[in-house]
Write a protein that binds this DNA or RNA. Structure first.
Lengths: 257, 257
DNA sequence: CGTGTTAGG
DNA sequence: CCTATCACG
């Protein structure tokens, strides 16, 4: 079973730029999308309930903003929306589903890059997400968190480490949070397989030549608990789809199911 | 002396689409611009004080909205901004200047097409403008009003006359207002020279094929008092500049000065 | 720099 | 459909 996480930076724009073609090449069985930036009714008709997929949309209340979705080829059940007890998730950031005995969580952390106000939001969110994820980790079933965490963990996860030490997404306490996360028992499959090298990046600014020069950040993660690690297989990052369709590349893992 | 009126529908966009080249072909001595939609400081540097021109900008207070300007090759003096006694004109709709003994008034009437609220504004504006223009008309010096009036006067001034009888810009009372205006003693030079034919249009919707099929409206006027009529010469409408650069075409008159 | 929004035309 | 805006990333 192939599971892909992809921040599409506006599904409508991605569709115009060849989303369909990229998806058929990446060929996932489970697709976790972030930054859909559309209510289902705003999508072109054939994309609201795409043929051959079971789809759950989880849009933000605010139009054109944030929002996640899970697409599965086999039927799935929704376990929860959001990380609050009451199931509220006004920005559509977490969608928790079960498919073929595996729990998948589509995650989209707030970005703090557009000001102190948003950074404060992000940090509040991190505080709540950490204990939530801790509980989930202990399950006996495979649990896979996939999504855009908007944090690069180590200098290997960001091209310009030095100059970004004060940038949201690479602040010391954000890096520490990402570390805690992994230390508590989640495996970071991309890093595990890539080894101790620079990259592989999954996001590139579209200012300047960051993309063609591969000066990016690794902020899209696939994280799994012990049970998931037992069935975890190959990782692939489709840089082309990133460049053509979004500012993020889709990250895919093969699970032995 | 060639005097041109042109609604540029955003000077910054027009510049990107070849404004400079069209202006040098049209070759006016006096240029009256409407819908500049920029504060001078938002324009590319070389356009803030274009070489070889004396320029007065008259922007709206609201960013990216409305705004007029007068460019002259000879020096000009500003007689007034707006039509209120106190010189206020928050939407930058009237700029009154004198150049080489001729008074030119750059006029941009509100559009009512985007709703009742805007239509009410337009009508209030029409009520104030009429007596203002009446006073001006009686001057012994040539007075030329040029601009976008957002009203087509007769069925000859609009392609789809029948289907627009309830459209803002061709409402019976608007047409009557335009008629009063001309009857009080302003000459409509474009109509005078074109004679009793359909068109020539100066604005085309950019929906559908309105432009290539020349299904437009004549809403840009050059109107003059008696003294102006004595020196009024040839009219030209540069349809190409309209199609390439804006949704309006520049309208030019030759004055014997 | 890009994807959305909204007002206005 | 097009030009602007603004929020957000």
């Amino acid at each position: 079973m192939r599971i892909t996480t992809w921040n599409v930076n506006g599904l409508r724009a991605a569709i115009r730029k060849g989303f369909e073609e990229h998806i058929s090449r990446v060929n996932p069985d489970v697709l976790m999308l972030q930054e859909v930036r559309a209510l289902p009714e705003q999508l072109p008709k054939q994309w609201r309930n795409p043929e051959g997929w079971h789809v759950t949309w989880h849009p933000a209340e605010k139009k054109g903003y944030s929002g996640t979705a899970i697409w599965t080829r086999d039927p799935h059940t929704i376990i929860a929306r959001g990380i609050n007890e009451d199931g509220s998730d006004p920005e559509g950031r977490v969608l928790h589903a079960k498919v073929k005995g595996t729990e998948v969580v589509c995650v989209y952390l707030p970005s703090g890059s557009s000001g102190d106000h948003r950074q404060a939001e992000k940090e509040k969110w991190m505080d709540v997400f950490m204990p939530w994820a801790r509980k989930l980790k202990s399950k006996r079933t495979p649990v896979l968190l996939g999504g855009d965490f908007n944090i690069a963990h180590t200098p290997r996860d960001i091209f310009y480490a030095k100059s970004n030490e004060k940038s949201s997404g690479f602040l010391p306490h954000e890096r520490a949070w990402m570390g805690d996360f992994i230390q508590m028992g989640y495996a970071d499959y991309v890093r595990e397989q890539a080894g101790d090298i620079d990259g592989p990046y999954s996001w590139w600014s579209n200012r300047g030549k960051a993309r063609e020069l591969d000066r990016g950040w690794r902020i899209d993660y696939l994280l799994g608990n012990k049970a998931a690690s037992r069935i975890a297989g190959n990782i692939t990052i489709d840089r082309e789809a990133g460049l053509a369709c979004s500012d993020h590349a889709p990250v895919t893992i093969e699970l032995d199911i």
